[in-house]
Design a protein around this nucleic acid. Structure first.
Length: 935
DNA sequence: GGCATCACG
DNA sequence: GACGTACGTGATGCCA
């Protein structure tokens, strides 16, 4: 660690002049610290492979600073996104800056964690640079009569120097006040922006006036006072060349002034009162430093016990047997804990990491009663704590067991201990169960999730269920849930399972979970999936849990009205069907309908599928209807209303909970592409495409004083196509904000853009979608209603126009063939089964999946990243909006009426800036009293 | 419990 | 030259 930056301790400045009783705010320029730390230190990694050199340097500098300086208030200020309000009027501003190095990117989040671990406030705000926030806080503190020290060597901050505000160079530990500013700029601090406006700044792309440097600028400003006066009187300047350039570049100078002028009126994301300086909590800081394996810092800061870190234990193992093979220890017998002494003794064995599982009486986490808890401290060492077993029934008396209160008194502190990592399988469920007041209301943290660890590496390869993973990775078949509870009508709830069977099942699950973690967590680094897991999947657990627990309000009375309307019309439609058919039959039975249409009425249409039954789906019925048949049309209307009534009106109504809201369950690890899915009820397929269907959306409403807001990505998958494939004209179209389907029609069908008709645009749109689905002539033909031959011609024309897209499709198929998976744009491994199948049908299907998966998966990752940031951004701005639903490219929020504008701006900004593609991301935001109106 | 159908992106 | 598909989901009702 010899190269660690060690600022000299000498010459510690006094606070700026003023009474010592006055508040003194210290503002640390976080970005400056970060880049200095990163570049000053050689690469360092944690035992799990995460790069941490900047984190180390940052902690080191911050720790040292805190030891040497005392303010009454302190905060570290960070830059949020790349783009700020300055880019709105001058896009080139800082635009040429390179992306941060790859090893640094994952460290930004850790550095924010580090700041919090030191007990110091983190401040950032999308759309504003750290410098703006510093200016705003300095102004606010000065207005309160306090003093301000800004820790930064950024010369742009020199404009802020006043009697009450000084800079402190973090390297030289040298205060910067008016004399130092004059030395640098040749003017007093209040004239610095005038000089910068003229001189410009090449590193930030601030143009200035060509040929004028700081010296000349200072001279001119000293003479004329400020930029505007100078420009107004530029004609008086004697030197002809200088006069000319000034007159020519007046506008550049004005823009430059706007670029360098810091926005002291920027909003304050956090009140100054919340920034009170306090010493770090040793437990919290120790836990963080231990997690990073910063033993020397732990020693220096005097926190925690600097022996083995959690990650290092994963690779080195607490005992040889574990390192050799997590599957080696026997699976049971396990302990049943029924006394406080036994629980104390078991918890004494907890060493940094704890396998955890809950048993309940329901799969619905929000309704579940906690029945028992199982824990595992090492492979083979697990126990079950029954809490609510047995009944009042004399035949099944409650066994001796600890009360929830007694258990939580001992276990609660472990579950919330920042130094003990809790490992669960499908953590979202257990976290929600334990968060229920009736189950203790515990906020478990920190948490790892073996289901998500597996999903980050093996999505689409195999199921992420605990039992299959145990088979796969441990070679062990766990006891099944069904075998202890029975199934079908004889199934009993878990509280009625005898304690010996309950322990064998439940403790084994905690044991298996811990062993899976030992086996899988180190693999994340090897498979380059660690960042995906840590920064996306793991953080989504809390985000989704909050969304599910919030739920969305649904108007049951409105649903009932719609249902009554549908019911009446269904009766009429059914009678109409029977009349046309000439006899009664079950309108909802495809089998009976097929027989009537094709056998009795003699319409033409073929058998289909292995079952040999007639197909009567919407496409077939529409064809028949187009040929003049009367019955299919009525059937179609009946089917539509029947679907709406059973699935949406009745299904939704029965899902309204006691709080008047519907709480879906988002599945985090079921899709092969990285998307979420939604069940019980599915709120990702609420109707929108037809007018009748949209009535269902009217019933999704906001609380009084609130509105629903919908923010959705426009054409995200096509933008990913333009990003991934070399397609100059598509990129151009997105850059210009053109109608992408019209542009495609123009280029593929060879018609001028302005004369593209509706039909051509529709066809082009279908082709664009087809491309993303892994186009085939047959499929496109079916969709367009043309012969495969004609579709083939369209596809050929498309690929001739966009050879880059064909190349990308071929590359993806090749990648899948070679490796068995394709990589999403953000590095998720998407496994493609059957890619090497002999069966050409199977293989062709797999190739289409290989083509589609990166687009669908890339879009899924973009919105997941946004979902992680939205709650943070809302909190930072003090907005009360709550994110309720995700529908693949759309986020639905409930927003206080007074905050609609601010929230809409924030959503657009966060979602659009979450990824930097080669084309812009565009988000459309709408709001209204219900979900239909929000679009 | 599998199949057909249809709701969404 | 033939093979039969558009990609990803979940809920419902029928029927064996």
């Amino acid at each position: 660690m010899g190269t660690e930056p060690s600022p000299a301790a000498a010459d510690v400045p006094e606070p700026p002049k003023g009474s010592s009783a006055a508040p003194h705010l210290i503002l640390i320029d976080g970005s400056g610290y970060i880049f200095r730390a990163f570049h000053a230190l050689p690469p360092m990694t944690r035992p799990d492979g995460v790069h941490v050199n900047a984190v180390f340097g940052f902690c080191s500098m911050l720790g040292r600073f805190l030891e040497q300086h005392a303010g009454t208030h302190i905060a570290v200020v960070f830059d949020s996104a790349r783009l700020t309000f300055r880019n709105e009027f001058y896009p080139a501003y800082k635009a040429h800056r390179p992306e941060p190095p790859e090893e640094l990117i994952p460290q930004f989040a850790l550095i924010r964690e580090a700041t919090a671990a030191f007990g110091v406030s983190c401040v950032e705000l999308p759309g504003f640079e750290a410098d703006d926030l510093i200016a705003a806080y300095a102004k606010a503190m000065e207005a309160q009569g306090g003093q301000v020290t800004i820790v930064s060597s950024d010369k742009d901050l020199m404009q802020l120097v006043r009697d009450a505000v000084q800079l402190l160079d973090p390297i030289k530990q040298k205060p910067i006040r008016a004399p130092e500013v004059f030395e640098k700029f040749g003017v007093t601090p209040d004239k610095v922006v005038e000089v910068q406006a003229l001189a410009g700044d090449a590193t930030d792309n601030v143009p200035g006036v060509p040929g004028i440097g700081i010296k000349t600028a200072a001279q001119l400003i000293t003479e004329y006072g400020d930029l505007e006066t100078l420009l107004a009187r530029a004609g008086e300047i004697k030197q002809p060349k200088r006069r000319e350039t000034l007159l020519e570049n007046a506008e550049k100078a004005r823009i430059s002034r706007r670029l360098v002028q810091l926005d002291a009126d920027a909003p304050l994301p956090e009140p100054i009162e919340a920034m009170v300086a306090k010493p770090p909590e040793p437990a919290r800081l120790g836990a963080f430093l231990r997690e990073q394996n910063f033993r020397s810092l732990m020693a220096r800061m005097g926190v925690g016990d600097a022996r083995a870190s959690i990650p290092s234990r994963v690779s080195s193992g607490p005992a040889p047997v574990v390192e050799a093979d997590p599957a080696a220890a026997p699976f049971g017998p396990y302990e049943t804990i029924t006394t406080e002494e036994a629980l104390r003794a078991f918890l004494a064995g907890v060493d940094g990491v704890l396998g955890l599982d809950t048993e309940t009486d329901s799969l619905d986490a929000l309704k579940a009663r906690l029945v028992g808890i199982s824990l595992a401290t090492a492979p083979g060492k697990a126990a079950y704590i029954p809490l609510r077993h047995g009944s009042n029934d004399i035949l099944n008396p409650a066994p001796v067991q600890l009360s929830l209160e007694a258990v939580l008194a001992l276990l609660g502190p472990v579950l919330t201990d920042p130094g003990t990592l809790k490992v669960l399988h499908n953590a979202k469920y257990d976290l929600e169960v334990l968060a229920q007041p009736a189950n203790g209301g515990i906020a478990v943290a920190p948490v790892d999730d073996t289901m998500l660890i597996s999903y980050a590496m093996d999505a689409g390869r195999w199921s992420q269920g605990m039992d299959p993973l145990s088979e796969q990775h441990l070679g062990h078949t766990p006891i099944t849930f069904d075998s202890v509870t029975g199934k079908g009508p004889k199934r009993i709830t878990f509280d009625l399972v005898p304690l010996d069977a309950a322990t064998a099942y439940a403790a084994e699950d905690a044991d298996v979970t811990l062993r899976l973690w030992l086996k899988l967590k180190p693999r994340l680094r090897e498979e380059k999936a660690l960042a995906l897991y840590e920064q996306v999947e793991r953080r989504m657990v809390g985000v989704l849990a909050a969304m599910e627990m919030d739920g969305i309000k649904v108007d049951g009375v409105e649903l009932r009205r719609i249902g009554d309307d549908f019911a009446g019309r269904l009766v009429t439609l059914e009678a109409e069907c029977h009349r046309i058919a000439g006899r009664a039959f079950n309108v909802a039975s495809p089998k009976q309908l097929g027989e009537i249409l094709f056998d009795e009425m003699g319409l033409k249409g073929g058998k289909k599928g292995k079952t040999g039954a007639y197909s009567t789906d919407a496409r077939v019925l529409e064809d028949l209807s187009a040929q003049g048949a009367e019955l299919p049309k009525v059937i179609l209307e009946h089917r539509q209303l029947a679907k709406l009534k059973s699935t949406y009106v009745e299904g939704l109504a029965s899902a309204i909970a006691a709080d008047g809201r519907v709480h879906t369950d988002f599945s985090m690890a079921v899709t092969s592409t990285g998307r979420l899915s939604s069940t019980e009820p599915n709120l990702q397929n609420i109707p929108i495409r037809t007018a009748e269907g949209r009535r269902i959306r009217d019933a999704f409403i906001a609380e009084p004083g609130h509105v629903l807001m919908s923010a959705d990505y426009s054409q995200i998958e096509l933008r990913l196509l333009a990003h991934l494939a070399e397609v100059p004209t598509l990129r151009d179209a997105f850059e210009k904000g053109q109608d992408i389907h019209a542009r495609t029609a123009s280029e593929v069908f060879g018609i001028p853009l302005e004369s593209v008709d509706k039909e051509s645009r529709r066809r082009a749109k279908t082709v664009n979608f087809g491309i993303i689905y892994g186009i085939s002539a047959f499929g496109l033909g079916a969709q367009l209603g043309v012969a495969p031959g004609e579709a083939r011609g369209i596809i050929d024309a498309y690929f001739r126009q966009y050879p880059g897209i064909r190349n990308e499709m071929e590359r993806l198929k090749e990648e899948a063939r070679l490796k068995g998976y394709v990589l999403s744009p953000f590095g998720r491994r998407l496994w493609i089964r059957d890619i090497a199948a002999k069966d050409p049908v199977l293989r062709a299907g797999a190739e289409r999946q290989a083509i589609n998966a990166p687009f669908q998966g890339g879009a899924a990752e973009i919105i997941k990243r946004a979902m992680v940031r939205v709650p943070q951004a809302l909190a930072a701005q003090g907005l009360q909006a709550r994110m309720l639903l995700q529908v693949h490219d759309e986020l639905v929020l409930e927003v206080p009426e007074a905050q609609v504008e601010a929230t809409a701006m924030l959503m657009k900004h966060v979602m659009e800036e979450v990824a930097a593609l080669r084309v812009p991301l565009v988000v459309e935001v709408g709001s209204g009293k219900n979900w239909a109106d929000a679009h």
